[in-house]
Design a protein around this nucleic acid. Structure first.
Lengths: 179, 179
DNA sequence: CGATTTTTTGAATCATATCAACGTACGTGG
DNA sequence: CCACGTACGTTGATATGATTCAAAAAATCG
């Protein structure tokens, strides 16, 4: 059997605990690891020219986060990852550090599937950003991630949705009035 | 050698010519093929509830387009593909119709890389939609796809950028004034 | 608890959409 | 190859959704 087996590798990866607010990956660094979230929640975000945060992904339990964009080639990370809650992750040695010959076919297929799902999710998000109002995006978020709603501060949800905290507050007020 | 080899497979795939306006994939159909664009240009888009088109990808020369989201599992297409120009494509038999065992490791690695690049592009686009004004998105588009600018009707670029044709017209006017 | 952060609310403003009208370009059939 | 019809791009007037700034209320943290 090949050295690196994707799903098995996760189960056997070392655990690490991360305090709320702790940064796991900084924009510009060479990413060396991926993180499988056992409990808690991480986020991926960038800072724009004006220093404003833009969250493009939440990673709660059972998600893998990391700069998959540079998974098989060495490139500096394009975004930051930190912990929204106290979090336990499994640290997956980055593929950069593994010879491709040592990755077995099953793992490659698994990764392909993971990538597909991510592509699907990202595409869906783009379409939503293109076609939906702030209110529609919020209600869709509520339906898709009902559990995150309780756990993630509103201002971060606002960031994820591409609106201001004030904007989200008003959207919520409006929706509450509808019921 | 395995039956299916990704890059070679493209070169050996049968050619098909597509007239401008011709539809290659319809939302809801089971996608059976991917398309490698030899010349011309395709687009991927969805229709929202109001029947409005939202283009989320252009596929000019040397792009592969298809419902990669359901590449390795059978699922109905979530979007439409049609031709913006008279186009020549190479038709790649969909992986659904190929036993995974027949896909060689090299192909899987190639596909992984393709997927990564797509993920990167999609992520970049999301961040841009979250953080940039219509004008910024347009100038970025001009820089990224200077050649598409000449070939794609303005209203389609507007759709891709998530603004109205009128909006794009005004943005262009404003930029022209700045020079 | 007190201090800090988050959320809410109000008022003014801005970016972009909408609707309608007009000119222009385009391709299609005669 | 021209003429017509349709699609495309522009412009103006108005409407709207969302932002910004400021301040107060509410929640959270140490």
């Amino acid at each position: 059997m090949k050295e690196f087996n994707f799903p098995d590798n996760i189960k056997n990866s070392p655990l690490r605990t991360v305090k709320k607010g702790e940064i796991l990956l900084r924009n510009g660094e060479l990413p060396a690891e991926l993180y499988y979230v056992v409990s808690g929640c991480l986020r991926g975000y960038i800072l724009d020219q004006k220093g404003k945060e833009h969250i493009f992904i939440f990673a709660p339990e059972d998600w893998i986060i990391g700069d998959q964009g540079s998974l098989l080639n060495s490139a500096p990370a394009l975004f930051n990852i930190d912990a929204i809650e106290d979090t336990t992750v499994r640290v997956i040695r980055h593929l950069n550090n593994i010879k491709l010959e040592d990755v077995d076919r099953g793992s490659l297929i698994q990764m392909n599937k993971k990538f597909q799902n991510r592509i699907l999710a990202l595409q869906t998000r783009i379409i939503q950003l293109l076609s939906s109002s702030a209110e529609e995006r919020y209600t869709s978020f509520v339906q898709t991630y009902p559990n995150l709603l309780q756990r993630v501060p509103q201002k971060m949800i606002a960031s994820y949705l591409g609106i201001t905290p004030e904007g989200l507050s008003r959207v919520r007020k409006k929706i509450a009035g509808k019921k």
